[in-house]
Structures are given as structure tokens and as C-alpha cells.
Design a protein around this nucleic acid. Structure first.
Lengths: 145, 145
DNA sequence: GAGCAATTATTAGCAGGCTAATACTTTAAC
DNA sequence: GTTAAAGTATTAGCCTGCTAATAATTGCTC
């Protein structure tokens, strides 16, 4: 390998790592008795921090596409965790709110998620984090032109 | 953020980056007239480099699960790119081979993929690559205990 | 060698990522 | 004000990731 980019390694490593993280999160959710997928959690997390957010905005913040947000919200509504309310100013939009059960879920799951984040990061330090962000952002940017 | 792991950032960044890479690859495939998904390419790549490989082994090398490998191979067989041959020693196994069309596809797509890898890695250097590998492996390891 | 456990691959079912097409609403242009 | 363009959300259809259950074969143990 004369240049790192000649290898499949970086695509593969990113792919494998994100799968691992997802697996661990999901298993921990299941073991904790949370009836929730990782992506459902991601939406709940954002709604909790941005009550009344639009689906559009949710899609942008999570880098999910609109149809996916629609479907995940459908499931969350069905579970009684989240509510769609017609927007007053713009009738094309919904404002998304947590229901009481959703708030409960958020508060129950959050500490578990934080613990997993800590576990994953382990002994890596601030400098590592800076490298990590720089490299990831760089790859992203290199593909955004 | 007192500690990087307190933020959603690293999970999110990895997730977003891999999505970006996949999108760029797929779009470039489409624009080049390749009738191929990214994951179908990944399997072709591995079969090309390991003719006769078993599905099991393919799953391991690609970190895909067995049902996914089965389905992707079904599509590749349907497209005439790949062939399943009964293994002589173990009749539970298939040996996977590229068909002539598959080899053609491999040789046609590979340079495009290499070019995209190069583009993504951009001006990052060997040292960055070392950091990248170390951090990713570390996260993976922290979740494998 | 009979019976049981492990291995290999498949099927079915749910969830999420993507594109394309559609319905509805708002905004802009004339 | 009417019409055209843009924005918001949904639906449908394909592909992939995951789990659980199944079928077929092999290997192990007695």
C-alpha cells in the first residue's frame, strides 16, 4: 500500500465500527428491556432537546431522509412516545412533541446511552478526539465538492 | 462538554461519514452506468480476490450477516456476475466464483472505486491514517469486551 | 454406527436508507 | 388574483441489517 487511499481499509473500518456501535447499543437496549431501536432513540433524543421541531429539521439534524423520519415517527406515535401537532403558521408542517411516556423513555434511556458512549471512547483523550473530528470532517468535506 | 464521550458527536460523525461515502459511491456508480449497489460491489471485490470463497467466509470478511450475503449473492447470480458451485468436500458449502461478466464488471468498476477512495482521503497523510486506524480500532475494541 | 451437537445456508419478518412520484400548502411572479 | 415554483410530508418499491427459525450436512461421542 503506497498510499492509504489505495486500500479498502478506511471505508471498511468506518462501516465496521458503526455497525459495532449500533449492535452494542441495540443489545444493551434489549437487555435493559427498552422496546426501542437505536434510530428511534436518536429521534427521541432530538425531539426531547427540541420540542416542537419539524420533521424536516429532524431529518437534517439526524442526516436521515424524509421518508425514514416519517416511518420512524409513525412507529413512535404508535408506541405513544411522540405526538404530531399541526403547525399553526404553516399547514404543511407538523410540530413534533414528546408525550409523557416519551419523556419517561428519554430519561430512562439517556443514562444508559451515556454510559455506552463512555465505554466506547475508553481511554482515548481530547487530542484523539481532535484528530478524529478533523479526519472525519476532512473525508466528509472531500466528498462534498 | 467535559469529556468527548459526553457528546453524541462520535457516533453521529461516524454514521454521517459512512452515509456520505456510500452516497458518493452509489451516485458515481449510477452516473457511470454501473447497474450495481455499493454492497454488491463489496462482494464482487472479495470474490474477485478470493475465487471459490464460501459464503460464510464472505460474511466474515465483509462483516455482513449470513442472510444478507445470501440475498446479495442471489442478486449477483441473477445478474449473471457470480456463480455458486457446490463444494466437493463439504456439501453444506458453496464456492463462489466470478462469471466472465463479473470479471468484466470488477475490472470496470475498480478504477472508479480507487479514484473515489483517493478523493475521500484527499490531503490526509500517513500519520493521519495511523491515528484513524488507532482510534477506530480502539472504539471497536472497547465494545468487544 | 446411532444419536446429538455444531456448521452452513436459507427463509421470513421487521426496521431503516435510498429514489421517484404524489398531494397539499405556501411563496413568488406576473 | 391567478399561475407557477418551491417547500413539507407521505407512499411505494427496492436493497441491506438484524433476529429467529428451519433444513441439510458434517463431526463428535458413546
Amino acid at each position: 500500500m503506497t498510499h492509504p487511499s489505495d486500500s479498502r481499509a478506511y471505508f471498511f473500518k468506518i462501516d465496521t465500527t458503526i455497525k459495532k456501535i449500533r449492535n452494542v447499543l441495540q443489545k444493551r437496549f434489549n437487555d435493559s428491556g427498552f422496546d426501542l431501536t437505536v434510530d428511534q432513540w436518536v429521534l427521541i433524543d432530538h425531539v426531547a432537546r427540541n420540542q416542537g421541531i419539524s420533521q424536516n429539521m429532524l431529518a437534517e439534524l439526524t442526516t436521515k431522509d424524509a421518508p425514514t423520519v416519517t416511518r420512524i415517527l409513525d412507529l413512535l406515535v404508535k408506541k405513544g412516545l411522540v405526538e404530531r401537532r399541526m403547525s399553526d403558521e404553516d399547514r404543511r408542517k407538523f410540530n413534533i412533541f414528546l408525550m409523557p411516556e416519551g419523556t419517561k423513555t428519554f430519561e430512562m434511556v439517556l443514562p444508559v446511552v451515556k454510559e455506552i458512549r463512555r465505554q466506547g471512547w475508553g481511554e482515548l483523550n481530547e487530542e484523539d478526539y481532535a484528530h478524529f473530528v478533523r479526519i472525519m470532517d476532512s473525508i466528509y468535506q472531500n466528498f462534498s465538492e
